[in-house]
Design a protein around this nucleic acid. Structure first.
Lengths: 215, 215
DNA sequence: TTGCATTGCTTAGGACTCCTACGTATTATT
DNA sequence: AATAATACGTAGGAGTCCTAAGCAATGCAA
């Protein structure tokens, strides 16, 4: 009798996937709402937000990798964004085949008003107890990292893949990590998922850091 | 000096949103891959998977609500699925305006082969320590519930909104909850996010249960 | 019971995503 | 110098996704 429920149950990972899917649906819907106000669709919005964090401009293929869509799709979307005067395309200096995509002044203005995430999602996350937020964040970073290892998304500018990252080197439980670039100790909640100062670690260091981080 | 990183940092909720977005990108890309093998796109696949859990058939509008897209979109997608012979449409008995959408035999066969989530995501989740999986699951359920309260997604068939759910009534730390339908105690990892036996609780009971659950 | 608002769905029209396949230019390799 | 690989673009097509408008059927109120 005690096992009545477990017997007909699905594996936890599958149920987690289901829950993740539901959140994903909500996020996508919010994305339409949020970007729609500015006359954009989700893909265009994502491109703009992505560009917002990169002053130096991005290649077309880099954008495609980041958003995990095909190059033609990005080519199309960027073309419409150019039409809307939010981004500009220029020839890359170092490669005559390549283009450099960056925000125009109008684009920057728009991105400034745009939040990266929908308001409801943001509110919901904020309503969680802070310890749960930090725990969730750490778990999400772990998932993101594993997805990168699996080649599903490009290596993001996260602390855990940075050459300046020194995980768990301090005794302080609240701030166990260290950033060798700015020479500061910090905690899990200050870990970055998209740091402008990020410089990729070599494979060996990355693996080593990852070990120290998750243990 | 100690605050060097924190000063230039973003709010945690925003960084969490960013991480969630990245996972979402990966999931969407996997969705294309996975469903593409069967000649489907993500939306068609989602509809099929959704229908897979509902023997009795669903209204068009219910599908639209579940996937958080407009009725015309579902109308289109269902039409192409009918063409592909995976689903059938019939008039609803109780309402001559409405249709009942359900899987055909071929549709059931296909859904049987389809996983709800992409293989990589599944693997990544499974690679997490089990305690972290359970914690993540609980947090995700909480987020899903909050999204429902906010009206962003329809009330799912989760334990926490079920009239048979009795949260935290047992002393056993591993199995504190109780299902009054099958009369069994169970733990967080056995909580359901889409239970076929689900019967919605009234508002009062739902609120009360939610309180007991999260505290 | 008649009238009107609401509901459930469909059609129409348009913007755009997203794909595969192929073409063109440039760069890298041999 | 010839060939391969890379970066991007175009073409063509299926299909998402929206808003707006329309048609039945239903529910409610006078």
């Amino acid at each position: 009798m005690a096992n009545t429920l477990e017997k007909t149950d699905f594996p936890l990972a599958q149920k987690l996937g289901h829950a993740l899917n539901r959140v994903q649906v909500a996020m996508r819907a919010e994305s339409w709402e949020k970007f729609g106000e500015s006359g954009l669709n989700p893909t265009q919005g994502q491109i703009l937000v992505l560009l917002g964090g990169r002053e130096l401009g991005l290649r077309l293929s880099e954008v495609a990798d980041e958003l995990a869509v095909s190059a033609p799709t990005v080519s199309d979307s960027v073309a419409t964004l150019v039409e809307k005067r939010y981004v500009s395309k220029s020839k890359a200096k170092d490669d005559a085949r390549a283009v450099s995509i960056r925000l125009t002044a109008a684009g920057k203005r728009l991105v400034g008003q745009l939040d990266a995430v929908g308001a409801t999602i943001q509110t919901v996350i904020e309503s969680l107890p802070e310890t749960e937020q930090v725990q969730l964040y750490k778990t999400m970073l772990r998932i993101v990292r594993e997805l990168q290892v699996a080649g599903k998304i490009p290596v993001a500018r996260m602390c855990v893949t940075c050459r300046y990252f020194r995980p768990n080197v301090h005794d302080n439980v609240c701030r166990p990590h260290h950033c060798a670039l700015v020479d500061a100790d910090f905690g899990d909640q200050t870990l970055r998922s998209d740091c402008p100062e990020h410089e990729p670690a070599d494979e060996h260091l990355a693996a080593q850091n990852w070990e120290s981080f998750v243990s």
